[in-house]
């Protein structure tokens, strides 16, 4: 008996991070406890109460009646969602644009970081980098305006296409559903490539220079060094960022799609969030319950993505989030 208590005490002593709970210690740090309590109340109101609002998805929610008096309808709203062709379509759109985004932005950011790292002239490198992440700080409204202007009939893209004789008449990019996903992907690349590259650049600079030297002694050329030293060196960073972004695949689809989409494009442009907006706020009947149900679907799928990708990373022995 005595043995076990000393053993557990020892464990507690080793685990410095875990402070021991005593009344004295509690009294000593009551300030921290009070502040912490205020933050818990705030967090419950603004982050956890909306989760309680999920019960609206199982009701026919009427604002005047509130959560307690609205009629219960069970899974009717979900049944409606999954029998609605529109909803299936917005899932496809959100998912497709999210994946395109994730793949291309990762590849471009890594590529840009590697190429920028090869630039030897300091001022040139700095200038390019400064320019490269400027668009990150512009709002999507501005980016959409810029993209819109570049692609109109008098925009620069059509001007170049006409000049080089690739097209004979200005091509209406923004009226062609087939072009919408590439345009959205490119807009993301334009806005975020330089910014995303910062983390990879930091990771590249933290690679031990000895590795490059020994690779050079072994006769590795520039591309071999990139292939066998740089990329394995930033692999943990790539994995962490992929994991973090995996959960955001469904979140990445709102602003530009909403701002750039139009009637002709709605079959490819509408995403889950736009669907929620249309049904819950812009329709004739404002169906809050349906919007909530669609939101639940989105959150649950996002969290599943994170857990699954984390599990896979764990299995493969890569970096993981938690």
């Amino acid at each position: 008996m005595e043995n076990t208590t000393t053993a557990s005490q020892k464990v507690k002593e080793i685990d410095v991070n875990k402070p021991k709970f005593t009344v004295k210690e509690f009294k000593r740090q009551w300030v921290l406890v009070v502040i912490g309590a205020v933050y818990v109340i705030y967090g419950i109101i603004f982050y956890y109460l909306p989760l309680v609002g999920w019960i609206m998805a199982f009701q026919n929610f009427v604002y005047a009646d509130g959560i307690f008096k609205s009629k219960w309808v069970g899974f009717d709203k979900f049944r409606f969602l999954f029998s609605d062709d529109q909803f299936i379509m917005v899932i496809r759109n959100t998912f497709a644009m999210g994946v395109l985004n994730l793949v291309f932005s990762t590849v471009f950011a890594i590529g840009f970081a590697i190429l920028l790292n090869e630039v030897r002239t300091k001022w040139f490198k700095k200038t390019i980098q400064t320019i490269s992440y400027m668009p990150h700080f512009l709002s999507w409204i501005i980016v959409t305006a810029i993209v819109h202007d570049a692609l109109t009939s008098t925009g620069i893209i059509n001007e170049l296409l006409l000049k080089f004789g690739i097209v004979e008449q200005a091509y209406p990019f923004l009226m062609k559903p087939g072009w919408f996903w590439p345009i959205v992907t490119f807009s993301h690349l334009w806005k975020e490539t330089g910014w995303n590259a910062i983390i990879y650049l930091a990771a590249i600079t933290s690679i031990d220079p000895c590795l490059y030297e020994s690779a050079a002694i072994d006769g590795a050329g520039r591309f071999q060094k990139i292939r066998y030293v740089t990329i394995p060196g930033i692999r943990p960073t790539i994995m962490i960022l992929l994991l973090m972004n995996m959960g955001n695949v469904l979140n990445a689809g709102f602003e530009i799609q909403y701002l750039l989409g139009n009637g002709i494009l709605q079959d490819v442009a509408r995403t889950i969030d736009i669907y929620i907006l249309k049904w819950s706020l812009e329709g004739r009947i404002m169906d809050f319950s349906l919007g909530t149900a669609a939101g639940i679907f989105k959150t649950v799928v996002s969290m599943t993505f994170i857990v699954v990708s984390n599990y896979i990373a764990k299995k493969r022995g890569d970096e993981r989030l938690f």
């Binding site: 967090g43 109101i45 109460l49 609206m56 604002y63 996002s302």
Partner: peptide, 20 residues
């Protein structure tokens, strides 16, 4: 408690109703 808030999101509509 706070890390959970980064992942568990109530969604647009419940948040709007709450703010109202």
């Amino acid at each position: 408690f706070w890390i959970i808030t980064m992942y568990a999101n109530g969604g647009m509509i419940p948040i709007l109703i709450l703010y109202r």
